[in-house]
Design a protein around this nucleic acid. Structure first.
Lengths: 165, 165
DNA sequence: GCAGGCGGTTCGGTCATTGAACTAGCATCG
DNA sequence: CGATGCTAGTTCAATGACCGAACCGCCTGC
């Protein structure tokens, strides 16, 4: 994994996944990339991550084919889409703690049906599990701790994977 | 999070989840606990984790209510069940890398239907997403890198959450 | 009593992370 | 052209988490 070295003795797909995304920052970087953040400076501002660490993580994700550099921005590739259910599951697990802390939670609506997906990612109207590009994310509750333009734009409803600013 | 301190500036449920399970070993500890490993020594042997680190991670998980100590063993509580979909999603994501490395992958069968669940956790026979206690895990492919009794027992089909040895 | 297994702690060394300062490329403006 | 400013990324000393091995205390069986 990005931190330490890896889990070479583990004969396990979860260990392989964590070797790529199991460090302190990578999943949060991917979260923001799914939400449309795509510039180095925006990621630094939103994550409060040291620039050296972000530079390293982005390079690893590019090398793994999950992100692709496009001039001054990074785009999520299709290879990263299988990671979306993991992010959504972690969000569902963290929701109670987040709500207890007075923060906002996110809802993901199926763009073709207009209904919110359930905790397991399913659209109750059509019964499918929409892929990330077919979801519209919005924040509900909380008061919003950040005032930078990117964070404000992220709170408004918008489609996943579409570059934000 | 367990490592470092946390992400206090992040107004995000994923960040709350990662503050609890986003460090170097916690998700692998929970993986083994879901699979039935429940003794300190077995976890040390299977994970190659420093004893001090495992001690710290177990204490955090107990404090969070995800594990409960029971004499000389640790049991997964219901509060930890919402984390299972995240583990399963990570396994699905890591499967290609794991297969490419010549390792084994796991299948999870719905115990009441006898059919394997799909990558999104659904039972194709009954259409539900079975909870962890209704799943039987087995390893397919690979050659098994570990010979300790616990790892051997883990490779045989068995029900999740039932103490193994 | 005593040997051995078990859960857990202590401790010095190592390595990743942190945060601030610095470099380099590029565009704009006067 | 030269100055200015923005962006991406690197360097570097200090901090802190992690690592591995040795040690401690408890319980059990002989």
């Amino acid at each position: 994994m990005p931190l330490g070295q890896g889990y070479p003795q583990q004969d396990c797909a979860i260990a392989r996944a964590l070797e790529l995304v199991g460090d302190r920052w990578t999943l949060l970087v991917l979260r923001d990339c799914f939400f449309g953040v795509h510039r180095f400076a925006d990621l630094v501002a939103r994550l409060d991550v040291p620039r050296a660490v972000l530079s390293d993580r982005l390079a690893r994700l590019v090398e793994a084919g999950l992100l692709v550099p496009d001039g001054r921005s990074y785009r999520v590739t299709e290879a990263a889409h299988p990671l979306w259910p993991a992010l959504r599951s972690l969000a569902a697990f963290g929701e109670s703690a987040q709500a207890a802390a007075g923060g906002s939670v996110r809802r993901f609506a199926h763009v073709t049906c207009g209904t919110d997906t359930t905790a397991d990612g399913r659209c109750p109207t059509c019964g499918t599990v929409p892929p990330p590009p077919d979801l519209v994310v919005r924040a509900v509750g909380g008061r919003g701790r950040r005032d930078d333009p990117v964070s404000v734009a992220l709170r408004a409803p918008h489609r996943l994977l579409t570059p934000l600013p």
